[in-house]
Design a protein around this nucleic acid. Structure first.
Lengths: 209, 209
DNA sequence: GACATTAGTAGCAGACTGTTACTTATTCGC
DNA sequence: GCGAATAAGTAACAGTCTGCTACTAATGTC
């Protein structure tokens, strides 16, 4: 039973996932994977595997499914427990590189399924877990945050609506710093700092997939 | 590696899950579980295990997580791939009985965690998957449907708002039948029949958990 | 036939969303 | 310096959605 981790980070304009070609193996890309050590919990193994490839600890790690339906795994495992980890952009460990999450064609069939499942989990839980915030450094601009949301949702969001909803949820506090990004007005920096809430749930949603 | 299935169905006033005391084992309750057969996919194994205990095929079956962190499994498995299946109320197979999902105290620690995860998955995906509909027979009243939503969400819903949102989503069509439930006006029967849609997604939600 | 009980709907007030249009603050080119 | 270009950030309006109250409708019970 293998542990496979899809490590996701926002690059310029698209989401990136970590991949590499295994030394002396095939020409297929693989995501970070390995076997759990004796006495190691599944989550600890996933964290270790992700960290070794990314060169840094994932800031958020979630299980994204277990695959075992005869599709070949690079290590020959019958079953793969797959995880998705997110972290801010970073230089990966030697051998690993960021690839565009929207075109996973270089990966093998098992890993393509795992990547699709990982991205689906990120999208599903985006409104309940601080996924986008964990993809950014502690201080970020609201435009950066919006860009991450747009990558994850794969659709454009209106600036005013986004900020209005964000502030209504009391999820960020402004820092007393501004960052100038070349031309244009400097953007204020914010910090993820969820305050109070746990408000009464509103209505029922019927969104057939 | 075991396969464990939490089988859920709406009983009078609360959700029920299938459990039994294993013959000559311990006094702990267990959910349906087993080992995948050679060449059997994980989903096929889960479907088989659920059907044998429930006496009927689950109408919806979803993976709900994989547990393996040292907590004891009744079969001694290190890792358990857990699933959640739903179906309309039915008489279970001999030996199995419905127990209240809200008080899983009779189960062992591993199964308590699995049950909590299963219920969380049901709640999370309630707005994207026809979970409530698969817990009801093909013809049902809107009051029955609302009762299932209330069990799953563990909160009361306002009747008018519920029906307005339901009809706006074009998920049900009325049958030309009415059912009288003792006293009170007879209720019209409906059928799950999602039509068109796939509408443009609305805004961004920020709901810290 | 009055009453209790459940199904189902109309309509209002307030909240939320999408959008346009604006103001503010900076760099670039001259 | 000074206007143009660019990006951040806000105000405000109109349309939509939600929570709620209050109602009507249809049946069984006494």
């Amino acid at each position: 039973m293998s542990i496979d981790v899809v490590v996701v980070s926002p690059l310029a304009g698209h989401l990136g996932i970590l991949g590499r070609r295994e030394p002396g193996r095939s020409r297929r890309l693989v995501v970070p994977w390995g076997w759990p050590a004796r006495g190691e919990s599944l989550e600890a193994a996933a964290r270790r595997i992700a960290s070794e490839a990314a060169g840094a600890e994932p800031r958020l790690l979630m299980q994204s499914g277990t695959h075992g339906d005869g599709v070949a795994h690079p290590g020959g495992a019958f079953v793969s427990v797959s995880w998705v980890g997110v972290l801010p952009p970073a230089v990966p460990a030697p051998g690993w590189a960021w690839t565009d999450a929207r075109s996973p064609g270089g990966f093998g069939p098992r890993h393509r399924g795992i990547i699709a499942g990982a991205v689906a989990v990120l999208r599903q839980r985006l409104d309940h877990e601080p996924i986008a915030f964990r993809m950014l450094p502690p201080l970020f601009t609201l435009s950066e945050l919006q860009a991450v949301y747009e990558m994850l949702l794969e659709r454009r969001i209106h600036k005013a609506s986004f900020r209005r909803a964000l502030h209504a949820a009391w999820l960020v506090t402004p820092a007393d710093e501004w960052r100038s990004e070349g031309r244009g007005r400097p953007a204020q920096l914010f910090r993820y700092a969820p305050r109070r809430r746990r408000g009464a749930q509103r209505g029922v949603r019927f969104d057939p997939t």
